[in-house]
Amino acid sequence: MTVFKRLRITAGALAFACLASAAMAEDLRIATEGAYPPFNYVEPSGEIKGFDVEIANALCKKLNANCTIVAQDWDGIIPGLLAKKYDLIVASMFITEERKKQIAFSDPYYASAMTLVAPKGAGLTDLTDKGLSGKTIGAQAGATQADYLQATFPSADIRLYPNQDEVNLDLASGRLDLEVGDMVPMAEWLHNTADGACCEMVGEPIRDPAFVGEGVGIGLRKEDDTLRQRINAALKEMREDGTYQAINDKYFDIDIYTLK
């Protein structure tokens, strides 16, 4: 056999291997909210971006998967997964016992904590139900922030909103006395937006596992346990090879995997 023929055979074999590999790549649909910057948001062009989206895309590379990212309103995000509209939820979802009754989760891909936010100079020091009785407090409906608000401040005037942006807008506009939100996006809003300059965090970080769970995880159907194990292995590899840190550093000044 001539060298030329050997080269032709080798090239053909490589091409076949590449085609076979592409054929073996699985198709996955991934849902995110698209209304929770900097974790997930929709650009004016319609493109979905953010930390969650980049984590999802990096994960898909590790899994050798062809992924499609779709935006889904928060209230319908778990029902959509159970109805098989998509295969995974990568949307900054707290891993809670209540949610684990419906779906499975990956290992956490970042740490969780909530915080109270008030207008600067509001003088809110008694952050008990009695101290906040009659105050107007907002949170995102269907989220663990709303559960915390309703359980902790039943004497307050509670207002729930479709998404976090609307909560923030009403706080900045003076229509709320206080809000509860996830610590990392609240810090980003306070320090890096014009509207956020109105306000500040008050009180201690909220770390009660009944509300913030075990961290933030990727949601999937309970029957997809093999996929869950592969996701956990890929997340571990992303932490070890620097992929995760590179994405983290594009968005945050701290390591949100540990909140340090």
Rank of each mutant, 00 (worst) to 15 (best):
P108C: 01
P185A: 07
V180D: 00
E33R: 12
N248E: 04
Q140L: 03
A139N: 06
F105T: 05
G123N: 10
D157Q: 15
P108F: 01
T226W: 00
I256N: 03
I103M: 13
A194K: 14
G34K: 03
K250T: 07
K100M: 09
G76K: 11
E179P: 00
Q102I: 00
Y36W: 14
R221A: 05
Q72M: 13
S106P: 02
E98M: 03
A122G: 06
D107C: 00
A122V: 06
Y36A: 06
G217D: 03
N64G: 05
P185H: 06
V90H: 00
P79F: 08
E214S: 10
P185Q: 09
R8E: 12
K5E: 15
E179S: 10
N57M: 08
K222Q: 12
L28H: 04
G196C: 07
A172H: 03
R159S: 05
T193Y: 05
L63I: 11
H191F: 08
W74K: 09
N192K: 15
T258F: 10
I48N: 02
D126H: 11
R230W: 01
L116F: 13
A15C: 15
C60K: 06
K61M: 01
N248V: 08
I30G: 00
A56I: 08
I137L: 05
L124V: 07
P119R: 15
E33S: 12
T32R: 04
C18E: 13
A233L: 02
D27H: 15
G217R: 07
Y161S: 01
T258H: 15
A11D: 07
N64E: 07
A146M: 05
I206M: 06
T10M: 10
G123W: 07
R6W: 12
R29N: 07
G219Q: 06
C60G: 13
G134F: 05
G46L: 07
D52M: 02
A56Y: 01
D87E: 10
I247S: 03
E200M: 09
P119M: 09
P162E: 05
A83E: 14
M186I: 12
Q150H: 01
M183K: 13
D249G: 11
P185T: 09
L7W: 15
V184R: 06
E214C: 01
G174F: 05
G213C: 03
K120V: 08
R8H: 09
V42E: 08
P162R: 07
